[in-house]
Amino acid sequence: MKEITGIKEYIKPENLVYRKSSLLTDDIMHYCPGCGHSTTHRILAEIIEEEGIQQDTIGISPVGCSVFLYNYIDIDWQEAAHGRAPAIATAIKRLLPDKFVFTYQGDGDLAAIGTAETIHSCNRGENILIIFINNGIYGMTGGQMAPTTLPGMKSSTSPYGRDVATMGNPLKITDIVATLPGTFYVTRQSVHTPANVRRTKRVMRKAFQYQKLNRGTCFIEIVSNCPSGWKMTPVQANKWMEENMFPWYPLGDLKVPEEQQDQQPKTE
C-alpha cells in the first residue's frame, strides 16, 4: 500500500468539509470500532448545538454501554439506575417544563428491566424524547441475551441460539409504545450508512422540536449493531444487521402526528 505522505498540506480551510460538534468533548470514546453509539452521540451533539439548546437540555444516561455518555456531550446529565431513565426524565420534565429532556437507553435497559418505566412514561404521555438503541444484545456485560435478541441468535446466555420456546420471543417494544395514546411520534431508524445517519438526524431534530408542542412522548428506536458482542467485523455486523435485524425491526415511522401539516415544525 502506498504510504500517505504530506497529509498536512491537505489540511487547509477550503478542504474542511466536516467539523466536530463543539458540544462533543475531547474525551476518547470507549466504544468498540464500528459501534453505532458514537455515531448516534455525534448526531445528538450536533442537533443540540445547531438548535442552540445546550442551556435548556438535560439528558439521562443509562446503565449499559452508553453509561459514560455524560463524558462525551457537554450538557447537564443525570445517570440513571438500570431501566429507570424514563421515571427520572418524568420528574425533570414535570419540574422544569421549559427544558428539553431526553433519555438514551439500550435494549436491556429499556425493554427488559425498565419495561414498566418505559410503558408508563409513554402512557402518561410525558413530554420527553426517548432514544432507544436496539442491538439485540447486552454489550457492556459481555454479550448476553437481550429482550430483543433474534430467534436462534447466539449470545453468551443463549449459546445454542435463542430458543423462543423457553427464552421468549424478541420484544417489539417500539410497536407497543406506538399503540399508546400518550406517544406523539414513534419511529425506527438506523445509523449504519451515511443516508441513514442523515435520516436519523432529521427525525431526531424533529423529535426535539416536538417537545415545544407539549403533545406527548417522542420515541426513536435506532436499530444498531454490536460487532464485539456479535463476534463480527464492523462490515460483517452491518450486513448481518440488514439481513437479520431489519426484517424483525423494519425501519420507518410507526406513528406520526395526525395534524402533521398544521402542527409539524419546520425541519432544516
Partner: peptide, 26 residues
C-alpha cells in the same frame, strides 16, 4: 407543587432522584 402517582414505588423513588438532581425539594 407537582404531584404524580407513579406506576410503582421503584418509579416513584427514581422520580425523586430526577427531581432532587434538579435541586428541587422532592
Amino acid at each position: 407543587m407537582v404531584v404524580v402517582q407513579a406506576e410503582s414505588e421503584v418509579a416513584a423513588i427514581n422520580m425523586v432522584y430526577g427531581g432532587a438532581g434538579c435541586g428541587k425539594k422532592v
